[in-house]
Structures are given as structure tokens and as C-alpha cells.
Amino acid sequence: MLLVMGLATQLIAWPPALLDALVDHGFRIIRFDNRDIGLSSKMDDAVPQRKDVLRSLAGRRLAKSEYLLGDMADDAVGLLDHLGIESAHVVGVSMGGMISQELAIDYPTRVRSLCSIMSNTGNKRQGRPATSMYPELRRTMMQPRPTDREGAIAAGLDAWRQISGPMFDEAEVRGMIEEAISRDPDPYGRIRQLIAINASPDRTARLRDLRMPTLVIHGLLDRLVSPSGGMATARAVPGSRLLMFPDMAHDLPRNRIGEIADAIAQNAARASVPVA
């Protein structure tokens, strides 16, 4: 099972309890850092400017990006090739859900089953951030990350607190942020990834061609990617199943981990090549 993480978030952000639950279901788990984040390669010569972010937010035709979500899907396929894996069950969170959708669209024979979590189809009218999120998003994405370690940790905690639901665990998130900063102090990858999201095309029409078992999971408290994004994804993919949690925001709450893992396993069991 290939796990694809979201915007500016490293492979270490996957909750250990979810990984353990998926392993218990019989999956061999593959995690990786998307390009421009964590220990993956960086585009150090492409430093984004404030105007680049503003142009991307204004519209995809104005966005100038060094790469698109489709290129990040190519990265994932390259990883499968390197590992000698012909096909895998694919689970993506947030931007990772977008990348996973691109992967399923462009490489349908490589995806046994698809699970898109707290994501959207790329339709700008669906899955938009809540109005209350815009000041925080502007502050997070437009201002440079603090250069001192404690300031960076505090900024990260504040960002996670803004998007998380009632099960937010500050101690757990702090530990993840501290490790993430140690692995990758680069402040620009998150901005380049954001521009890539805004520059990438709407996937709605192409999602209608998917035929692999598909599960869509979303939280009703999500303010970063509104629940309409998950609903639109489920409507677009024929035969997909939609699972929504009333106490889940833009996070993977510990009290729902068992249900999420069970639902992913049930969806994978519908595949023509099931879990070994």
C-alpha cells in the first residue's frame, strides 16, 4: 500500500496507530516524502516570490509553477518502479489525495484501489477553504517561516491547531514538528507545492473514467478543504463510496483510526488484486 502525504507534510506525519492498523490488515506499507519536502530532492534554484503565490491564487492560468500534481504522480510511479512493484493500493491525504487521483487517472493499471482523504477534484468551486481560514492561510504561506527552532515549532503548532479537530494532541504534534524541522529546514518547498496545486487542472472529467474501487473519506469539521471537496470526488468517481466523520477536521483523529483502517481494507478487498 502506497501512502501519499499532503502539502508541506513529511512521511513522518502518518499516525503510527494507522500504520499499525493497516499492517494488521495485511498491507506492506510504503511511505515517502513528496518532492520539495522532507528528504526528497529540492528545487533550490526556484525560490518563489510573493507575486508567484498571488498569481497562483488568482487563477490556474496565471499560475507559474515549476511542476504540477501530475509530475508528483510520476514521482510516485517512479518509486514503485524502483521497488519493482507492478501495482499497489494507494491512499492519499489532502494534496496526497490529489496526487493519488492523478496517479489513478494516468496509471490506472498501477492502482489496485484508491482512497482519497480530505481532498478535492481540483474544481475551484468545491472543497474551498472556509472563509475564516483565509487570514491564517495568508499568514502561513506569505510570511517567511521563523529561522529560530522554537519559533518554527510554535508556528507549526499554530498551523496544525488551526486545521485540526477536537482530538488535537499538542504533545504528539510537537514531536512530529520537531522531527520534521530536523529532517528538512527548507522553508520554500511548501510554497512551491501550493503553487503546483493551484496550477494543476481540474480532474473532475477524468475521474469519471476510473474503474478501480474507490473510497473517499472526509471530515465534516474540515475548514481547510471543505466537505464539498470530498462529496464532489465521490460524485465524480463511478461506484465510489463516501465516508464522512462528524468529529474529524483536516486531520486523522485517533478515535477514528480503527474505522478509517477498516474502511480502507474493505475498499482494497473489492480490488481485482486484493491484499495478499
Rank of each mutant, 00 (worst) to 15 (best):
M43K: 03
M43I: 11
M43R: 08
M43A: 12
D44P: 02
D44F: 08
D44A: 13
D44Y: 07
D44R: 08
D45S: 12
D45Q: 04
D45N: 07
D45G: 10
D45K: 05
A46W: 03
A46D: 05
V47F: 00
V47E: 05
P48E: 01
P48S: 01
Q49L: 14
Q49G: 09
R50D: 03
R50F: 10
R50Y: 07
K51F: 04
K51D: 05
K51Y: 04
K51P: 01
K51G: 03
K51N: 06
D52F: 07
D52N: 09
D52A: 05
D52Y: 08
V53L: 15
V53E: 00
V53F: 08
V53N: 00
L54C: 08
L54N: 02
R55F: 11
R55V: 01
S56K: 02
S56A: 15
S56M: 09
L57P: 13
L57F: 14
A58H: 05
A58L: 06
G59N: 06
G59E: 00
G59H: 01
G59D: 00
G59I: 02
G59M: 02
R60M: 06
R60C: 01
L62M: 09
L62P: 02
A63Q: 01
A63H: 06
A63I: 03
A63D: 00
A63Y: 01
K64T: 11
K64F: 12
S65P: 12
S65D: 04
E66D: 14
Y67W: 07
Y67V: 12
Y67N: 06
Y67G: 09
Y67Q: 04
Y67K: 03
L68G: 09
G70C: 12
D71C: 13
D71H: 15
M72G: 11
M72R: 09
M72Y: 13
A73C: 11
D74T: 14
D74L: 14
D74C: 11
D75F: 15
D75C: 13
D75T: 10
A76Q: 12
A76C: 15
V77W: 11
V77L: 15
V77E: 09
G78Y: 14
G78P: 13
G78V: 11
L79M: 12
L80H: 07
L80R: 07
L80V: 06
L80Y: 05
D81T: 01
D81S: 05
H82I: 01
H82C: 10
H82A: 14
L83D: 02
L83S: 05
L83Q: 04
G84Y: 01
G84A: 04
I85M: 07
I85H: 04
I85L: 07
E86A: 13
E86N: 02
E86M: 02
